[in-house]
């Protein structure tokens, strides 16, 4: 596979490490009333879509950036690649 890095252009997937669903960015509030329940869902529950999936890839053999890659799990077609930092900020983390 080839991931089109937003800063560095197309790179072989061999340069990257896969983590999983990009929902891992949405870490719950540790002080919430139901924090334990929320962390349980955060830690253990994932959707497994046949189709479009937002997922985290780490450019370990590159600029060490975490990316959010939108990939179709059926065709491996990648429609969007973003810096995870930007996604995290856009989702209100900082």
């Amino acid at each position: 596979m080839i991931i089109n890095h937003p800063l560095l252009g197309p790179r072989d997937a061999a340069e990257f490490i896969y983590l999983g669903d990009a929902c891992l960015i949405d870490r719950p509030d540790w002080q919430a009333e139901d924090a334990a329940e929320q962390f349980y869902e955060y830690g253990y529950l994932r959707d497994n879509p046949a189709g479009e999936h937002q997922e985290l890839w780490y450019h370990e053999q590159g600029d060490r950036s975490w990316l959010v890659v939108t990939r179709d799990t059926l065709s491996h077609k990648i429609t969007k690649v973003e810096l995870a930092r930007d996604v995290a900020v856009a989702r209100g983390r900082g």
């Binding site: 891992l24 960015i25 780490y58 370990e60 950036s65 975490w66 930092r85 995290a88 983390r93 900082g94």
Partner: peptide
Amino acid sequence: AVLVFRRMEFARQCLWPDL
């Protein structure tokens, strides 16, 4: 060593990008 670094980059970029 490699795994901890990776995880810390995750924390830095994805969880607490304001630091």
